[in-house]
Nucleic acid binder design. Structure first.
Lengths: 155, 155
DNA sequence: AAACAAGTTTACGTTAACGTAAAGCTATAG
DNA sequence: CTATAGCTTTACGTTAACGTAAACTTGTTT
């Protein structure tokens, strides 16, 4: 018997509400068993939850994610026609992801140039008005969440 | 005077409904001028529309896209505080896109292995039942849209 | 003049993905 | 024993991003 999880374990691990997890079950993305009336999640369920979250971040709808899960499950038992259908579905998805890769690259470039423009505007401001009360180094690594996020890409 | 566009020109070029385009204006993503009561779109509007579509494909909400547009516009005139805010917002976005890149890579890998599994299952089926009525080559390049999409990733 | 095309505003309807109570079961701690 | 914590179902509410329909203006073609 491999490991199992409660709904709140999964919720806190992936930072979801239990409501969402139950909703995903309702949409047939997860299939927990029951002990009494309580849901028991397998490690397969956990993997699916992780994949679901990834899919969502990529803009997939829950229905699309479910479709992919079903395709995967039926790969073993599919008929010839089924298998051809799966291949084409998979191809569609892969093509869409290729497109997304390109999109991301484009937007990254634009954000990069926006950042550069921003830094230049800042430099100009700081040249005209160089009086600083605080330690100037503190600008580079400040304390709030926002700069923490931005620091992920600064270098 | 650079080129202008009508709403239906843009709609057909980007395969949107005019409803959507007007909605985007309502959300302040576009700012067409008017000739009489009719909307006239500049090439800047056209660029923004293209960016909007890209953003949507990446799962950005219209509000987020609008925010990015505003940041870009205010880069020239921003105060110091504004500029720091922009930099952190841009950083957030770039980090999110980095994450998406990773997500895509993971999902691509999974789709790839699903495709392989699929092809193997097919081979096994075709070995057991090798009687074909049609030309066997036709399987490789069939006619429907789905396989056209999949062919985009087949090498 | 009549009708057609392309545009407009106004406003109600729809779907996805949950949020948010409300009300009830069940085991364990005090 | 009760009360607290964690789970459950049921069900109505909410937001985003449009769809869809109705009723109107404006210009152009027949």
């Amino acid at each position: 018997m491999s490991k199992t999880y409660s709904i709140s374990e999964l919720a806190s691990e992936f930072d979801l509400t239990t409501r969402s997890i139950r909703f995903y079950e309702d949409q047939e993305l997860l299939h927990p068993t029951r002990r009494g009336q309580t849901r028991v999640y397998s490690s397969k369920d956990r993997v699916r939850l992780k994949l679901t979250i990834r899919g969502k971040r990529l803009g997939f709808s829950l229905a699309e994610i479910r479709e992919l899960f079903e395709l995967w499950d039926e790969t073993r038992s599919g008929s010839k026609k089924q298998l051809y259908l799966m291949l084409s579905k998979i191809g569609e998805r892969r093509a869409a992801l290729d497109q997304q890769m390109k999109d991301i690259t484009m937007v990254q470039l634009e954000l990069e140039s926006a950042e550069i423009r921003c830094r230049q505007a800042l430099e100009e401001l700081l040249e005209k008005e160089p009086q600083e009360k605080q330690d100037e180094e503190e600008r580079a690594g400040s304390t709030d969440k926002a700069s923490a996020a931005s620091s992920a890409t600064m270098h």
